[in-house]
């Protein structure tokens, strides 16, 4: 019942699997960091524009 023939395949799976998961998660991590920065920048710009418009309206009044 005990058989070590598949152990090399299992070790290959472990190496490929763990490296693969880490690479995917690192790519997702970088993507999240970029997304957070870009979307926050876009929101800040939008907020500044809205604020500038409010200030202009206040001056006109």
């Amino acid at each position: 019942m005990i058989n070590f023939d598949n152990v090399p395949k299992a070790l290959s799976l472990m190496l490929l699997g763990m490296v693969g998961i880490f690479i995917v998660m690192l790519v997702i991590l970088c993507m999240v960091v970029i997304l957070n920065r870009v979307t926050k920048y876009a929101e800040t710009r939008k907020a500044k524009k809205a604020q500038a418009k409010l200030n202009d309206n206040a001056k006109n009044v």
């Binding site: 019942m1 058989n3 299992a10 070790l11 472990m14 699997g17 763990m18 880490f22 998660m25 690192l26």
Partner: peptide, 22 residues
């Protein structure tokens, strides 16, 4: 925290290794 989501999958591959013996 994504990195821990990766590291904590180690048990899958270790168990596959042990299971491959049986």
């Amino acid at each position: 925290m994504l990195l821990f989501g990766a590291a904590a999958q180690f048990g899958i591959f270790f168990t596959a290794l042990v299971a491959s013996i049986f």
